[in-house]
Amino acid sequence: MEIKHRYYPHPVLTYYGSDFKKGTFTAGVELEPKDKEVEFSLTLSTDCNTLINLINAGAASYCVHIECAGTFYREILTIDKDGELVHAIPYSKIEGLVNVCSFIAAVEDIPNYQGSDFHDDYSGITLNINKGSVLAVAEQSSFRIEHDADELARVPSIFMILEHNDKDAKEMAVDLDEQRILLYLPKDDYYNYKSVMGDTLQQPIFHSAMILPALVYVLTELRQREDELYIFEDKRWYRSLTKKLHDIGIDINNDGFGNNESILTAQSLLDYPITKTLHYMTTNEEEEEDY
């Protein structure tokens, strides 16, 4: 489930609408990863008297809907009137994007729903509310759960080199559709690459010749697609790159991201491979590096 700015046939207290003249409904969601489960600490609160009265009367309840579409996990929690709950979900049930949506909802039919804090447009209208109807919506929280105890956690690089599918290809191609960025090398280049890939001394050359231009391409793509970055959010390379950018002081979700020069950012991310390449070529010695 995802919170959309939806309008309902009855007054709903939301952070985006004006069905109520006053009142707020907020939800705090905090995650604490444990050994075998993740603990969600939920705190829901409203200062709207109409809704507080319904909750106290047992006609409405604080509700939290937790969903992980990728693993078919979906659960609704009803929370006592104090609005607080700690709820644990085993890692065996969730992986990837988890959406947490908080509501106040009718847990039984409510005939003649009225409130002094409704917008004037609702005055004089008799409202019959059905069980399950949403009465208040808080902002959604989303989390990415990645609990991978095996070798995936040790992926050394966000790039992977493959032989080009097209045997006549002469250029390196880049594919962003998988969990790692795939670099396709023409057949001969690929086998030459494989013959030297174990030589760590030559890594700076490898970084300069292949990774640097690929990274420039990736950053340029991201800049140009600034408004649709969400399409990459399920890719591990994107999340890793986002973190690496953050480490050098660049926020990919910030409006200013598009102003960064890809060629400068890429060199910084790779810790200046051109300098290292030239150093290696002139001295045949590896600079200390940790990439």
Binding site: C63, H65, R74, I76, A105, K131, S133
Partner: peptide
Amino acid sequence: GGTILIDLYNEDD
């Protein structure tokens, strides 16, 4: 499911 929290329903609902 877009207008109500359908997961609040029970089997009979």
